Computed example of a mutant assay.
Amino acid sequence: MTPADTRPANPTLTERLRRELRVLITPGRRMADELECVASVLLAIVIAHLVGAEMIAWAAFSAFVLLKGPVGETLVRAVLRMIGTFLGATLAIWFERMTNLALWQIMLAVALVGGVGLYGMLTAKRAYAFLLFGLTFLMIVLDRMENRHLDIEALALTRVLEVGAGTLACVIVSVVSTLTARRWWPASLTPSTPPVGWHPDAARHAVQAAIALSLLPVIHLYWDIPELAQAGVTIMAVMIVPVAGLGSSGLAPVSRRLRQRAVGCLAGGLLAAAILYVAHGSVPLLVAGTCLGIVLGRHIENGSTRNAYLGLQFTLAVLVVLVPDDYANVAIEPGLERMVSVFIGMAILVPILVAGHLIAPERAAADTSEDTSASE
């Protein structure tokens, strides 16, 4: 009998935690990836400050999410992210120049562009560019609605600078790592998803997201919720699920992502708040806490496919709270406002998903029975 045969079939939580802690401190592929993420985020923060970006946390998050797989894969994602960001920013500028920013125009625009961006993300060959196209347009238009005194060209420019800073940092770290650590621990290829063309279930799914997005301007009008763009990002992000698992209702797969986003954001937010309290404005402590949060979040993300999205949201919360726009004026309020907006996005989306599920209960039941038969 080999040592592997003596392992319990169902390890306890304590045993799983011990195993993950051993992996965390053991040099290897996962450690290399986690340290790459730390270096990428820190470099993105520095570059974002140097180029005059405003929302530094978005630059940091761009650097984090881009870093996946070998350098070739990272480069492709970087190019697609920049193309999507530039196109979304350009369309946002054009939108303001061609309209008077009436409420119905904003509602229609964020619904249409966000829906197209999500549908492209689910079905297109250059999916990542479609996603960033929709996200960038959404963020700029909602930020402009919230801050009427700001120039939309300035907003568009800072979005491009933020993504550019994160992208540049990610590419630099990926190239350096390829020449050093990745010679011993090569990065794993991310499985590619082939384009699916026209897909009615994906179209229905995108329409549900578009309806949720269209409600954000109305909510801002009556409740004046700050950082509302984060609610829009949440709506689009949690709706990104494999087309093959949609069926006639995306309620089940999206609900799992909603739960993981909620748990990940709460856990990451609590850790970040504790670090912020202990740091008491100390920049070195804030940076060290940011590094700790990145390593923990990426370690969770790399641990299992089931918890990957939870780890990503954990890191998002850490970056939102611990990466201020200005280290000279560190405060928890901006991070909390962005976190609240994330949960508002969830609250808007859930009733729409439930309604869509109930509209076609017979189809949903048929899909469920087919899935069950296939799994058996």
Rank of each mutant, 00 (worst) to 15 (best):
A355K: 10
R97Y: 05
A237T: 15
M236N: 06
S282L: 12
P361C: 11
H49M: 02
P194R: 14
L75K: 07
T158R: 13
F133Y: 11
V71H: 04
Q260H: 13
V173T: 12
P242L: 09
L87P: 02
G115C: 08
G84C: 03
I352N: 05
G335H: 11
G289P: 03
E227S: 15
E301L: 08
I219Y: 03
T136N: 09
R30G: 08
R259C: 11
G166W: 00
T6Y: 07
A262V: 14
S214T: 10
G166Q: 00
L358I: 09
A317N: 03
R257E: 02
V323C: 04
W185F: 15
R97D: 02
Q208N: 08
F64H: 03
T26N: 11
D224K: 15
L189C: 03
N147C: 06
L21E: 07
V350E: 04
G289R: 00
L319G: 01
G28N: 08
L286M: 14
T6W: 08
N100L: 12
V320I: 15
I344S: 03
H49E: 02
Y327M: 11
L112P: 05
P324H: 02
A57H: 14
G269A: 08
P324Q: 04
A129I: 12
A365D: 11
N10F: 08
V233R: 02
R97V: 03
E36N: 13
A102N: 13
A59K: 00
G134W: 00
N302I: 04
S373H: 12
A209R: 02
I332Y: 10
L296P: 00
M145C: 05
L286S: 01
V110S: 09
Y327K: 06
V175C: 06
E337S: 12
V287L: 10
R148V: 14
R183M: 09
A44C: 08
A231D: 05
Y128Q: 14
L91R: 04
G289C: 05
G247Q: 04
L336E: 05
A32H: 06
R144K: 15
A78R: 00
F137M: 10
N100E: 10
A209L: 10
L91C: 05
E162A: 15
P186F: 09
E162W: 00
T12R: 10
C37V: 06
V238C: 07
G84H: 01
Q260A: 05
